[in-house]
Design a protein around this nucleic acid. Sequence first.
DNA 1: AACACAAATAATGTATACATTTTTATTTAT
DNA 2: ATAAATAAAAATGTATACATTATTTGTGTT
Lengths: 201, 201
Amino acid sequence: MKKQFAADQAYERIRDAIYDGVYPSGERLTEVQMAEELQMSRTPVREALKRLGEEGLLKNKRVLAPTEKEFIDTFDVRRLLEGHAAARAAAYMTIPEKEELRACVTHAENGQLEERMYWNKQFHEKLVTASGNEVLIEAVSRMEAIVYLFRQTVVYEQRPGLLEEHHAICDAIDAGDRELADTRMKDHLDNDLQFALRMRK
Amino acid sequence: MKKQFAADQAYERIRDAIYDGVYPSGERLTEVQMAEELQMSRTPVREALKRLGEEGLLKNKRVLAPTEKEFIDTFDVRRLLEGHAAARAAAYMTIPEKEELRACVTHAENGQLEERMYWNKQFHEKLVTASGNEVLIEAVSRMEAIVYLFRQTVVYEQRPGLLEEHHAICDAIDAGDRELADTRMKDHLDNDLQFALRMRK
DNA sequence: AACACAAATAATGTATACATTTTTATTTAT
DNA sequence: ATAAATAAAAATGTATACATTATTTGTGTT
């Protein structure tokens, strides 16, 4: 077990708390309060808050409250990047990698809600990671915060068609069809977006 | 004139110094030394260095030394994003915006090296900004550091064909041809990449 | 009640001190 | 001479103090 700096702990704990809805969108996080709660001095907390700010989870000290536009804009970029990742995967993924990817979908099919969330997330992550392009990976992961915070609900994981679409993407990749993989990923994300938007109403 | 925090000044000064080659790639920047040079305490310097780290200009305390792969990967993503921005521009840019964009190219044609650099940069910036997609804008700007540091030289601004390509992109946008604008931007960036890679040898 | 202003309270930004960790320099052993 | 081990030096991470800014609260006015 590696020793963790207080600043890192603070970062992780606050981040998780935000994701868990402990601090709702719009709430202001102050250094003193956080320091109090985490039982450490302001210094590491301050560092953690700054980092959360840079990563977009806080917007001048308040928990990000993503607007519909921000969400749409995020997907506009995401579909580009993940579509590209899918195309690359179709061209360069190794057989074992393809199998792992497919396994994500089947595991999701068989698992309960908790597991299903995990494997769906893994699916996208594996796909992007397989590109081997650090810049791409970084860019995608940077957008997770908004996505996560916007659709506060988890119902999304039950969206009809979701798993079928993941399968379809796998099929395109297995077939080595770049174009098709790209298109299917983009369509998939479009569906996700539409569904999430509808859920908010 | 707005008052600046010491941390902000530190950030800007160190960043500019890195860009100006004062601290060469690979050099280690320590808090104490920077604090000394900037005549302030370690606290704001530390904050600045952390920020520079998050933005990719420092990689555990050392000035980023981009590898060829990183550079290529960056362009792989850039062409996606800027290509998309060009396509959007073709579809949605207003006449005055189109004129401003074209002006960037003509200004570059008529200016000296310094100006030319400025206007070429403006060209790309205007194009991306016109998308109105904050996420996209942010993503593109995040990649500037690597691009800038990798091609330490400025010769790049003299690349044969560069201005013609900018014009060609403008033409496609003026014509409202999304596909073509996208392709031309991608080709343009591909050329940039190839040229930069060749320069390094 | 809504507004403007003043006083108070609280939060931030910076400097500094100190313990710990990391780097560098030096010594010792093979 | 090279490598391992140790000692010395330097740099980092955290806590704390204090001055400065923001924010809130309270008061009086229309």
